[in-house]
């Protein structure tokens, strides 16, 4: 199939970028979106031009490294699919595809389509862990977890931290990501001990990084490749309120 591409080119974070037109004449509908970009880059290199920089790693939809805003939607038009798992058969022959980096103030462009997502790491470092003695693995099932709780925690834990939620949100809010990380650990007995401290410091770090505020649009969950539900945000809101009230009372005493 033939494709007209409009791709964001930006040498580095210091200069401004712009959309550049490219054409590909022979793309297999069975190729993935990233393979299509590989094809373009081969063409560019053979013409002596700079290839388009884009992020990828596992290409199996599990690592969260691939990104891209494709025709205005993070990870493209296919529901519950990462860019690396998106196939060209979902596009029309002769279609024009606009490809941009995920955009948010805390996600500066490094080069072309590659952005710096370390703001997410900062949030996770602030509380997205449990403080446990390392050593040999504990016996499986030594801590009983109710089935419905385990399922909710697993749903939240399926977040791959790709940043599509921030990219899709009209406010560039990171609350689906933070909600997923908070819910995952706060729901489980292993994480419950540090519940309050976790939610307070992760939200604090999220605000400091400069993400926007959720206004309950629901764009994040709709584009999430792992379909993380909006529930996790409600859970974070609830846990934060409880933690704050407890904090006010314990500090007052």
């Amino acid at each position: 199939m033939k494709l007209n591409l409009k791709i964001w080119r930006q040498k580095n974070s210091a200069v401004t970028g712009r959309l550049v037109d490219y054409q590909l004449d022979d793309v297999s509908p069975d190729s993935s979106f990233l393979e299509m970009l590989d094809l373009l880059n081969e063409q560019l290199v053979s013409e002596g031009e700079e290839p388009v920089a884009f992020d990828h790693d596992c290409r199996e939809g599990i690592c969260g490294t691939c990104s891209l805003n494709i025709n205005g939607i993070p990870h493209g038009p296919q529901k519950a699919t990462t860019t690396c798992q998106l196939h060209m058969r979902h596009f029309e022959d002769g279609e024009t595809i606009v490809i941009e980096p995920f955009r948010a103030k805390p996600f500066p462009v490094i080069s072309d389509l590659i952005i710096d997502r370390s703001a997410f790491e900062g949030i996770t470092q602030a509380g997205g862990f449990i403080t446990a003695r390392t050593g040999s693995a504990p016996d499986g099932n030594s801590i009983a977890v109710r089935k419905n709780i385990a399922e909710k925690a697993m749903d939240a834990a399926s977040c791959i931290g790709c940043g599509a939620c921030v990219a899709a949100c009209k406010n560039a809010s990171a609350m689906l990501y933070v909600g997923a990380k908070v819910s995952h650990l706060n729901l489980l007995p292993q994480g419950a001990a540090e519940k309050d401290r976790r939610v307070l410091s992760m939200v604090w770090q999220m605000d400091r990084a400069g993400f926007g505020n959720c206004t309950n649009y629901g764009e994040c969950s709709a584009v999430c490749p792992k379909e993380i539900p909006l529930d996790v945000i409600a859970k974070m809101n609830r846990d934060y309120a409880v933690a704050t009230v407890k904090n006010i009372f314990t500090q007052a005493m």
């Binding site: 941009e100 955009r103 926007g212 206004t215």
Partner: peptide, 25 residues
């Protein structure tokens, strides 16, 4: 704060889920 969180707008932006009432708040 929400406007500041996305200083560079998208060239092409789609809306998948957000309702008119939510966007018009």
């Amino acid at each position: 704060e929400n406007r500041l969180a996305r200083p560079d707008r998208y060239e092409k932006e789609a809306t998948v889920e957000a309702t008119i009432s939510s966007r018009a708040m």
